[in-house]
Amino acid sequence: MFAEAGITEFPDTWDGLLEACKTLQDAGYGGFSLFTGDDAWYSINLITALWIANDGAVTVNASTSFNTPGMIDALNTYKEFCKYSTSDVIGGNYSVAGANFSSKKTTMAIDGSWFTSYQDEAVIPSIGVAPMPTNGDGVAQQGYLVTDAQTPWAASAQTDPAKEAAIAEFMKFITTEESTKTLTMEGSVVLSAKLELSDADLAGVTEQMASYLETNGDAPSRTTNLQRNLSTQAGAELPTLLESFLLDQITAEQFCEQLDELN
């Protein structure tokens, strides 16, 4: 579809990708598969990626607020991308957006590479995996990763100091690189930690897990999709906020303020 529209290389900047979406639309194809229903997963992946491109992964990972100029700009760019998506962005859900990609209504799905395995076998050879574009200003490094994977470890408060010390010791043990590797390789637990893995290690896991580990290992940075950093209540209101923003009921600034307030 990219070739049909005359695009030979996947753009390496977001501005370039926006231009490409316009070209694709002129050729009769939608840009990204996006949706606001359920957890608005694709939309939030895109917004997170755009935010990282604006502020850099280190800043985004450390940010305690969504109300930043980089995030506001990311939302406005996201709105631009929505113009090149399908008409069911508002209210659509993961199945609808996934089907839009599978049925070639859209050309891109911002999802894990495993998503390819869901596609029809005849279609798979025509699907490519592209690294996240940047703004071309060096703020974000090419190939940065937006991930869903995070494994928080938590323990309830203890009154017994001996138990508390034992728990702390266990936490230290379970989060060592060796333990992380064991959990990943033997337990198939998807963690976002960067691991040093040999070819022999990768041969012992499934193809999808190997693909994930390689991508994760090669990425210059990993940022958890911003929705995973929201409180449950804020996460539940996120689709409504997105729809309000897309329907021009609130501005990007108000979106960020309200999200901070909810969170």
Binding site: T36, G37, I90, N93, G235, A236, E237, T240, S244, Q249
Partner: peptide, 27 residues
């Protein structure tokens, strides 16, 4: 099924509100 209660909650009914508060917001 048709709108997930959207856009901007304009189709949310009491039954769906109850569900969302319990299952999505854990309240």
């Amino acid at each position: 099924v048709m709108t997930s209660g959207g856009p901007v909650n304009t189709t949310t009914t009491l039954a769906l509100y109850i569900y969302k508060k319990m299952m999505n917001a854990n309240q």
